[in-house]
Write a protein that binds this DNA or RNA. Sequence first.
DNA 1: TCGGGTCTGTATGATTTCGAACACTACTGC
DNA 2: GCAGTAGTGTTCGAAATCATACAGACCCGA
Lengths: 273, 273
Amino acid sequence: MSAITQDGRCVALPSLYSQETESHRCRGAGKNVADSDAHESIANLILLSLPRATLRRLQPDLELVSTARGEVVDRADQPVNYLHFVNRGLISLVKSMEDGRTVEIGVVGIEGVTQPGTIFGISRAPLDTVVQVPGSAFRIKHGIMKDCLAKDQELREALEKYERFALLAFAQTAACNRLHHLEERCCRWLLIAHDNALSDTFQLTHEFLAMMLGVQRSGVSIAASRLQKAGLIQYRRGQVTIVNRSGLEDATCECYATMRTEFRKLFGPPKSA
Amino acid sequence: MSAITQDGRCVALPSLYSQETESHRCRGAGKNVADSDAHESIANLILLSLPRATLRRLQPDLELVSTARGEVVDRADQPVNYLHFVNRGLISLVKSMEDGRTVEIGVVGIEGVTQPGTIFGISRAPLDTVVQVPGSAFRIKHGIMKDCLAKDQELREALEKYERFALLAFAQTAACNRLHHLEERCCRWLLIAHDNALSDTFQLTHEFLAMMLGVQRSGVSIAASRLQKAGLIQYRRGQVTIVNRSGLEDATCECYATMRTEFRKLFGPPKSA
DNA sequence: TCGGGTCTGTATGATTTCGAACACTACTGC
DNA sequence: GCAGTAGTGTTCGAAATCATACAGACCCGA
């Protein structure tokens, strides 16, 4: 599976979404695929999976926007104006408690779209939806998307399949957050972020990561510095670089691999290599 | 909101699903509403919420079954044969990890139905689905349900609304399991079980509860014995009795109240008292 | 260049939960 | 009545994480 750029280039996709068994390709640190792309090519896997005709119908209504770290895309219980097909970066679904502590329930990466459920049922966001790793997304008005869906069986099926994956990932994350150690969970999160950042370096602070994992910031700092000492990552002031991806995969819990397996089961082996 | 029995009696519903602000009605310990009911009346809130015509159409295909503790209703990744409208008792959606440890992701009580998502999308169970508190359920063949849904907008909307609630509850549970203390979580679980058992006494072992909360059995024993000493519950060999419901509500975390609020927002205040 | 804010490193004791073990008790089936 | 199993009470040291604090490092804008 790979992303096809507008000019026909073929970009290898990162591990969670790729079919290679051992994919430890590290992209040049700091290189940011789309930094200078005015017309960013489509990397979102839902959009890429659609038949050409379907995609063409959607395209006039898709608007490329860049997403900034911390940006609140949707707020829990508020109406959803746009759906975001993530093209690069990571968007988190976050539950906030009364005392202000937070936990990430799930993420939307380049495999997905925000608020798929609002298309079928109630059109209010169930959770806070926040940009974790900045990047870009194709957004589409909620109402337009709803109309498109009514007319297009393929699109509907793609969303249903994605919802299925999202639910499985939520469950895995919930269990992981309960049962696994902080350091393992840090690794899991970094791997997923890496998969979606389309770059080995991306913005991320300990503070943010702590909020996602539902732990104290100081705990993340300790875990992160251990990972750094082990040569797996490098970071400085809100910027992480994945140095040794396969090392991270060894250091994480089963959950990352399980999600990858589920992803493949659902989205299947590609037609060919 | 209340359940209407076949002979017209009106049964007050327990707290999560009721509209009363402070509902500490404790039903006689040990009395089990339906123990001797051959034709158990409908208590499931989805079924009760349907228009009479819709319900009548469904009824020939609804089969009342009793659910035994530990019974596996559906297994993760296996095809779903029946949907279960829970009528009494509690069914858990459980994630099992490789080492055998488990965490409950969500529950289906009398407000819900198992596997609603399989009606819209992929028809395999996402999670292990296990009876936690024995009771009864109206089951319907998956295929028949799918057909009914295609023809019936009201039914579809009822399921979509329930799915929304389920997702919110999953998120709350996930966050709670990460952030709140074992004893508080025990209370939350007992309250929800109480709401669905339709009796103050129900079957439950420490072992089961530990698996649901993703903790050690000994931890549950300690918490449970504290709750017993505080006069909130009583138990003996796999059987719990809720003694002081309002005490439990005081001892639990915010999560129970939040779920109740969400439930009311979605299913609204009743037409009248 | 000088604040001021943000981010990280680290320390501390307190608390919670783990992990494992063992004894005891109540129920079940024979 | 007895053996076997299931369920509970309890212990204990170990480990993880909390909660809080503070200092230093880096970055930005005035």
